[in-house]
Design a protein around this nucleic acid. Sequence first.
DNA 1: CGGTTCCTTGACGCATATCAATCTGTGTGG
DNA 2: CCACACAGATTGATATGCGTCAAGGAACCG
Lengths: 265, 265
Amino acid sequence: MEKAIEIFVEDLLRRRKAHRDDGIPSLFDGLSEPNLQTLLFSSHVVEIEAGKEIIAQGDDVAYVFHILGGSVKTQRFSSDGKESTIRMLGAGETFMEDSVFFGYKSPVHAIAVKSGRMLIIPAETVQRRALTDPQFACNLLKILSRHYKNAIHQIDSIVAKSPVERLGYYFLKLHMEQGSDSMEIALPFQKSTIANHLGITPETFSRALAQIKKMGIDVEQDKLSLRDAYALCHFCDLDIGQSCPHFNTERCHLCADEKGRYRQA
Amino acid sequence: MEKAIEIFVEDLLRRRKAHRDDGIPSLFDGLSEPNLQTLLFSSHVVEIEAGKEIIAQGDDVAYVFHILGGSVKTQRFSSDGKESTIRMLGAGETFMEDSVFFGYKSPVHAIAVKSGRMLIIPAETVQRRALTDPQFACNLLKILSRHYKNAIHQIDSIVAKSPVERLGYYFLKLHMEQGSDSMEIALPFQKSTIANHLGITPETFSRALAQIKKMGIDVEQDKLSLRDAYALCHFCDLDIGQSCPHFNTERCHLCADEKGRYRQA
DNA sequence: CGGTTCCTTGACGCATATCAATCTGTGTGG
DNA sequence: CCACACAGATTGATATGCGTCAAGGAACCG
């Protein structure tokens, strides 16, 4: 086993003992140490360089990728050059795990955004482990479910929401992820990338920023600052609400104002 | 075990012997008979009535649903009444399997479109079986991967394609599913439902139909008829192409005309 | 500094949503 | 069997919101 992998495993076990868990399901959750070793035996750590294409649409998927550092986006290109950004991933996240189980061809391009390192696990190993280690299979199921749920949100946003609403929803998600106590949020990607992910042009994105500023949500450079803790509440919905501590209490503006509006009929 | 379930199991085993496989991954593929029995022991068969809501957005997910007959759509409603259709499902398909593994709350409404019957499997049973029966876990992975891939296509369509292109792409998918030899395709859902799934209004859908008619794709009532076998080729892409017998041969108009156009840097 | 990349702002046009009217098919009751 | 009602689909007229094009500004880097 590579030296880099050994270090990674050590780090993983250390973190596990410290009970650090950010809520995002991971490939490695709850795996026994021998199973972890087996899984990673044939894996490698590779460098990724910003801007480089990691895998192209239509390519055979030989590996499952786990990001150790840096960031990656997955997108599709249509024949007339338009692109649609499907996901934007950071450290700890995984991609191509879906293609291993259906299709074997990548439905998307994966492009490095920020340089960093990835763990690559041979597709064949992933398949084999999924059939032998039920915990591993369940981790994959959790990850895939999460991806799918995010995709549903993305569809819903694009179909039913205005650009400003999409932006607010995206910001709210960031806010929840980065710990909802801070009044400042760092934009993890460049604006044009986020814009494309939201299905709008950079120009419209920019105008939406101007709009949302009036609602107490200010963006300077790549830093988002909120006027107050409830500035983003307007963009809340049932899905996000479930992980909000104030949801369904009188402290939740949305619930207080519009109780039951989701429940009609 | 219910009588209805017994009949279902018998039917499943019979079909398995006959090697009938329509390419869509199923929950029950390759399960041993005892495992199948265990899985279905606590399941039930229920009737669904057209128009009725099966599960609401935000509900706790107590069952995984497998459609035996009839059809179902899943959609989200935004606060201002707009709806976005995520999936449209027919017999043999499954829903809510994703929520069982992440979130436990349904991200969508599920509404019966055509009356029929469903098999409902308790969520807890599904979880337990996934941890004990690796084959079952892999079936779930395949199904989820398929859902996710479809969601990616849906996002890509809405972001990057014109209404006519979306329509053509949707028709092409239908064409591939229903056996690509026939010149006639039945629309499995009512037009307004399809329109919403494609992220357009019924009016725009209708106008797109008029456009696409000029390209040799005619729709009368709910029957789609093609002028020739290649009428839909214009809407092909890499993902669909992979399951087309003529792809990457000189018989494929697209490949012949525009070879490599997807591959440019 | 000058060059590059990214973001912003403005002016404009078009495509799609919206609103409204008509048409078509289907089922219902007399 | 016809008249009627109703839902869904189509067609037309209008409006508007977003994309497109173009120019200017801001930050970064050699």
